[in-house]
């Protein structure tokens, strides 16, 4: 009983009665095969299993450019790839206002995403092309980006917006702008 479980809790997990557990522990009877297998799994799990990561945790680990903002424009999570692009440490910007650091066309894009109803679940997704001005302590730089913006639910079931993007060159920017006809396009939900 290394896990300090009550007999009743273990019984619930294994789908047997608490009396059965007590009999196994006293050596009066042997658990069936199915229970032995499950016990072996539980013992192993105690060492190899960590809590399930949430999708927000996974965003922070992402080597690509990805970040999450809420309806107030706060950074809720930023990927490792985006931190590399921005050239800052996580603690410098997470939990702060995105538009304090990100300007250029992207600032207007964030407003449009909000106005089009991203946080009211009115959008399936939005796409944007344009400049991203990165304004951090180490200096300012501007890159051209292609972004997709899409909704996900936080654990508190409020809508967050995930921004996934790539840095593109001028030729790709021009080509994609022609394809889409507009710098900012949305796909509504029904």
């Amino acid at each position: 009983m290394s896990k300090r479980l009550k007999q009743a809790a273990l019984a619930a997990d294994l789908g047997v009665t608490q009396a059965m557990i007590s009999r196994w522990e006293n050596g009066e009877s042997d658990p069936p095969e199915r229970v032995k297998r499950r016990m072996a799994e539980l013992v192993q799990d105690a060492f190899v299993v960590a809590p399930a990561p949430t999708w927000v945790d996974l965003v922070t680990l992402n080597p690509g450019i990805e970040f999450v903002t809420d309806s107030l424009g706060m950074f809720k999570a930023i990927s490792n790839g985006a931190l590399d692009l921005f050239g800052v440490g996580r603690e410098e910007i997470e939990g702060r206002q995105a538009q304090q650091f990100l300007g250029g066309d992207f600032a207007a894009t964030m407003d449009q995403v909000r106005e089009k109803g991203m946080f009211q679940s009115n959008l399936a997704f939005a796409q944007s092309l344009g400049s991203l001005e990165i304004n951090v302590a180490s200096g300012m730089k501007t890159v051209l980006c292609d972004f997709i913006h899409w909704p996900r639910l936080s654990e508190a079931r409020t809508v967050y917006c995930v921004h996934s993007g790539a840095v593109i060159d001028e030729a790709a920017y021009t080509r994609r702008l022609e394809e889409r006809g507009d710098r900012f396009t949305v796909r509504k939900t029904f």
Partner: peptide, 12 residues
């Protein structure tokens, strides 16, 4: 919709 949206994603 999610599946269709992936095709538009500029990331990998």
């Amino acid at each position: 919709v999610w599946m269709q949206r992936i095709a538009h994603n500029p990331c990998m």
